[in-house]
């Protein structure tokens, strides 16, 4: 597959995703924040984690207003599968391609740890095909928030992608990842769990050919 990987000022998991996709045998191209791109030129688009714009104002807010995101919106309209990881998830919520918002963790601290997750919905583009997985999280603002009506819609549409077994950050309904159409976002880092020496390999199964 041909995968477009976004880079903003302050993105710091860009090479991590590049290595990850390469390890799985995919072609990668960088998508620079200042440039627009042909929305149908890629099989998948990934927005990696990091601290775009230093997380200033709100995490993801400044990145979501850059030229490259206009193309991401068009890609979503063209049903290109788009994935946001961590900061990428925050950006997708900020621009409205995913419902909800990500707020500061309940304990007001950054949390880095391995967590057990339950994948609760199947997804045609991004999936594990197994029910329980273990991945690391590393975020300061990962508390998923959505109002009651939004949560109900999400549940009705099968938009809850995965939940924490032991909620680390105060997310509504233990939500760790959501999907909407071809767009998906998750807080855990699958790219940090692809070799035994990393401590686990559950991250490998995320990219699935459809």
């Amino acid at each position: 597959m041909k995968i477009g990987i976004l880079r903003f000022l302050g993105t710091n998991c860009d090479y991590d995703i590049w290595e990850y996709a390469k390890a799985l045998g995919h072609d990668c191209e960088w998508l620079w924040y200042k440039d627009q791109f042909n929305p149908t030129a890629y099989d998948r688009i990934i927005i990696p984690g990091g601290f775009s714009y230093g997380d200033y104002l709100r995490s993801g807010a400044l990145a979501s207003r850059t030229p490259v995101m206009a193309s991401v919106k068009q890609a979503a309209q063209n049903n290109i599968p788009i994935l946001g990881i961590c900061n990428g998830f925050q950006i997708l919520c900020e621009i409205g391609l995913l419902p909800g918002a990500l707020l500061a963790n309940n304990n007001r601290r950054f949390i880095d740890k391995w967590v057990d997750l339950e994948v609760v919905s199947e997804n045609n583009y991004w999936s594990w095909g197994q029910q329980n997985i273990r991945l690391p999280i590393a975020h300061g603002e990962g508390r998923y928030f959505i109002d009651e009506q939004g949560l109900k819609n999400l549940e009705d549409q099968g938009g809850i992608w995965m939940r924490y077994n032991d909620n680390p950050n105060g997310s509504v309904a233990d939500i760790a990842g959501v999907t909407q159409g071809t767009v998906a976002g998750l807080m855990p880092h699958p790219e940090s769990a692809i070799y035994e020496w990393m401590g686990g390999t559950d991250g490998l199964k995320l990219l699935r050919e459809s």
Binding site: L57, R58, A61, L62, R65, A101, L103, F145, I146, D147
Partner: peptide, 9 residues
Amino acid sequence: NSLLINPLV
């Protein structure tokens, strides 16, 4: 409305 606040929260 366009940037400074997230009206959801």
